[in-house]
């Protein structure tokens, strides 16, 4: 099942700098509201959920985070990819007493958990492949990355 269509140039931000996780979340929410993907309630819901259930993950080639929140805050499904200029600390999903320095953040807009069940597993499987991790880590611009991601997924 492909969901390459979820990737688009407007949902890829490369090499951006944020002063904190909150700064990143605020910018992301503003961008997603402007594009019509989320409700105004998203930001608070996202921040609360990340605090209660953090999403930092170590994978083989880079550390990632997959912030997400409940479906009622989502208008249309999306994956918003942000590649950070400077790593940001996220609490570790598996051990909330430790932190991971995250380079790639993928905001997951899950509207229908039952239908999108394979989304996260596919994403995580791709991050276990070196070639795909490199494409995401080294892609030069959003348009090129969109094309590559559409092919991969």
């Amino acid at each position: 099942m492909g969901y390459g269509s979820l990737f688009s140039e407007e949902l890829i931000t490369l090499d951006a700098s944020y002063s904190s996780q909150e700064d990143l979340f605020r910018s992301a929410a503003k961008h997603l509201v402007d594009l019509g993907y989320i409700e105004e309630t998203y930001l608070n819901a996202l921040m609360t959920r990340e605090k209660d259930f953090p999403t930092g993950l170590e994978t083989q080639y880079c550390n990632i985070a997959i912030p997400h929140t409940d479906a009622p805050h989502i208008k249309h499904p999306f994956i918003y990819l942000v590649r950070l200029n400077e790593n940001l600390q996220f609490k570790n999903m598996g051990d909330t007493e430790s932190e991971v320095a995250v380079k790639i953040v993928m905001f997951l807009g899950i509207k229908n958990p039952k239908k999108q069940i394979s989304l996260l597993s596919d994403l995580m499987e791709k991050f276990q492949e070196e070639k795909i991790s490199r494409i995401i880590l080294n892609g030069h611009d959003a348009k090129e990355l969109e094309t590559n991601l559409k092919e991969i997924f």
Binding site: R49, D52, F53, I66, H68, T69, D70, A71, M93, L108, I110, P113, Q116, I117, S118, L119, L120, S121, M124
Partner: peptide
Amino acid sequence: ACGSGVATSQTVASKV
């Protein structure tokens, strides 16, 4: 089990 059952636990369950 995961926080809300939105994504992670379902994904892990299908892998298991």
